[in-house]
Design a protein around this nucleic acid. Sequence first.
DNA 1: GTGCGCACCTAACGGTTGTTTGGTAGGTTC
DNA 2: GAACCTACCAAACAACCGTTAGGTGCGCAC
Lengths: 247, 247
Amino acid sequence: MCSAEQVSGRDRILEEAAALFVRQGYRETTLRDIAAAAGMKAGSIYYHFDAKDELLAAVLETGIARITRSFEETAASLPDDVAPSERLRRHVHAHLAALFEHGPFTTSHVTVFHAAPEAVRALGTPSRDTYERCWSELLADLQRSGHLRAGIDLGLHRILLLGAANATLDWFDPTGDRTLDELATALTEQFWQGVGTPVDAPAPAPNPAPSTRAAARRAAAPTTTRNRAARNGTPAAPTRPKKEPTP
Amino acid sequence: MCSAEQVSGRDRILEEAAALFVRQGYRETTLRDIAAAAGMKAGSIYYHFDAKDELLAAVLETGIARITRSFEETAASLPDDVAPSERLRRHVHAHLAALFEHGPFTTSHVTVFHAAPEAVRALGTPSRDTYERCWSELLADLQRSGHLRAGIDLGLHRILLLGAANATLDWFDPTGDRTLDELATALTEQFWQGVGTPVDAPAPAPNPAPSTRAAARRAAAPTTTRNRAARNGTPAAPTRPKKEPTP
DNA sequence: GTGCGCACCTAACGGTTGTTTGGTAGGTTC
DNA sequence: GAACCTACCAAACAACCGTTAGGTGCGCAC
């Protein structure tokens, strides 16, 4: 019987390394950890990679390549008559899906990149620029067509949007009671129309009881999701999932 | 001449450790690094702290205490008749100021907390909850008074807001061409009213040339600030500043 | 069946790290 | 001036980690 996951040694190492980097951090993960997960011994890794840093670089490169391709596929899949805010929402969804559903490679860019040695970061920067440009052009296009307000600082708001999206990694659990789609919708809504009531000044009609049952349930619920054994986000990138459920 | 910074040994260690943790990461910073920065030898740290982990715990605790106090001081300083969105903006500003202007202690919560050993994280969690509760209550209050839309998932939007705020650490430079105040304003605006044009569907009047000179300058500028030798934000927490400007 | 290269193993080396141990200079107390 | 406490230093230790060198079994070519 030919096993379902018939991955070559190199790919196996890459995959286990990415998973461990995301779960434990780069420095906290030893080559002996990776080798054990891949079913071999530490020294054998050097048959496929020249150094630990190079392994990290390969993981990061794979991650950014995947999310960039995901962006392009999303763009290609959009109907011609898609509403502008829906167009954005689909891209936000794709970004989140890459983080939560496409394995640990893309995730490593959020979790591990900043801890990478200078040389590795320098190597990975051009690919990150490419992905960044996709978003810049998307937003610029939306602004040109009049769907994003003129006069706003587009670069700034793009980073804020993606910052919020990436930060979800620290608390969101796609198998929890919020779906990834709901998350994408909420994030897009906050970016697009905000959550304030239209007029600011005097006082609008105060909110009475929450208007829907779903809203009521949420208002009563604790202030934040606590799935995945992770904590929510304040003021920092919060706790990552426990390294191992105490055995 | 009595030196201006006449800090005790313990406080000196704490301060240098926080700075190094933020700049290099926790695991990447050795006790010998910290000791050298504090003007002593590695073994001497053990006179003040029992272990490296305990030193990290002290740094984190100081950070969360400071930002929580900053929140409370901001709340106390608000005039009674402050507009709701301005009230939020002031708190956003205080949060960002704590990250960028109050030394490395608060910053360490964003940069280092997720890399901390389980035991340290568990120790720091209650204080983080306290700060989180401040924000929950602020937003709940704004919603009760009708200034935030009813029916939205407040906990979710709070995490998205703070996620975006914390992510600014990776690219924003308060000495650059955007001020911290402008950043707070933009972030609040994006949260409060969004950046989309009011109506979605057909096509509003396409944006002609940018309407102000400032907007024109920004539109022409590169897509993101690149101050501080840091990169912008995609898809991940981007590069931190170089460890040392090559000497 | 000999030769050869691929994919791995065994075992070690050198360096670094958190930590410990035994001291010691300087000030204060009595 | 003896005892004592504070705040450090010097030197080492054990553990661990990335990395390397040399070896081994297996499959394929011929």
